[in-house]
């Protein structure tokens, strides 16, 4: 049985107005991401990576074309439904962690569950368990500024998993971390991906990410340059920086 697509984009175009000149950031992206896949979107800065990423995450709507998340066309959704989608279907991880600074690790993880309608007690139990899973069981009551970058990102991963989303979107999750911590975070994401079957989509230019990805989507100038499967990736890791045409 073929696997179900969790995200589909059909001819997605996006342009912004730069003063009076339209800037075409995405020039027609067709993409299908399956349930449980680990996808890396790679590309130089300015390639439209982040814009595509926002589109998939329901943070932005395309100028043209369609984006389906779990078979729902996001262009059709009103503000309430979009918020619901973000709350229940998608978990976000950011380069800058973006934990709420005034809340403890535990409360940060509880927040999306509270929004989702869980009672405080249930949310607390589940948040504790999640923090345990990401290896922070001993630091639940610490504030973000009392945690290291890697630990903050772990809290963010726990928070992203709070409502058992179908997709986790990670925007440069290792961008602010050193090599070793970055690797740990990538491995943790991979683990969660295997354990919980959640699709993980990362936008990155961290080549360490290639190792764990099921597929790598290369973006250049608002187009998909190439899509590589896992089998081909391992061979290419060594030459990836010199290689132009693929």
């Amino acid at each position: 049985m073929p696997k179900e697509a969790i995200v589909r984009t059909i001819g997605v175009k996006k342009s912004f107005m730069l003063g009076k000149v339209p800037l075409h950031v995405l020039k027609g992206i067709d993409l299908e991401i399956l349930k449980g896949e680990y996808i890396s979107i790679m590309g130089p800065s300015g390639s439209g990576k982040t814009t595509l990423f926002n589109m998939i995450g329901g943070l932005d709507k395309p100028s043209e074309g369609k984006v389906y998340i779990d078979e729902v066309d996001i262009a059709q959704l009103d503000a309430y439904e979009l918020a619901w989608l973000r709350c229940r279907k998608i978990g976000y991880i950011f380069q800058t962690f973006n934990l709420i600074p005034v809340m403890s690790a535990l409360e940060n993880v509880m927040l999306p569950m509270i929004f989702g309608g869980l009672s405080t007690d249930d949310a607390r139990e589940k948040a504790k368990a999640l923090l345990e899973t990401v290896g922070l069981g001993h630091r639940v009551n610490h504030k973000p500024f009392e945690l290291s970058g890697g630990q903050q990102q772990r809290v963010a991963i726990a928070r992203a998993l709070a409502n058992d989303p179908a997709i986790i979107l990670a925007d440069e999750p290792t961008g602010n971390l050193d090599l070793k911590t970055g690797k740990e975070i990538i491995n943790l994401l991979r683990e969660m991906n295997k354990e919980k079957g959640v699709s993980i989509i990362t936008a990155t230019h961290d080549l360490k990410m290639l190792d764990v990805s099921d597929r790598v989507i290369w973006i250049r100038d608002g187009m998909i340059e190439r899509v590589e499967d896992r089998e081909n990736i391992t061979i290419k890791v060594g030459e990836v920086e010199g290689e132009e045409a693929g």
């Binding site: 503000a79 918020a83 709350c87 976000y92 973006n98 999306p112 929004f115 989702g116």
Partner: peptide, 15 residues
């Protein structure tokens, strides 16, 4: 940034 984050977590405008 905090507001943006909350919205990503599913906060409605009215929250």
């Amino acid at each position: 940034r905090e507001i943006g984050t909350m919205k990503c977590l599913g906060a409605l405008d009215k929250f």
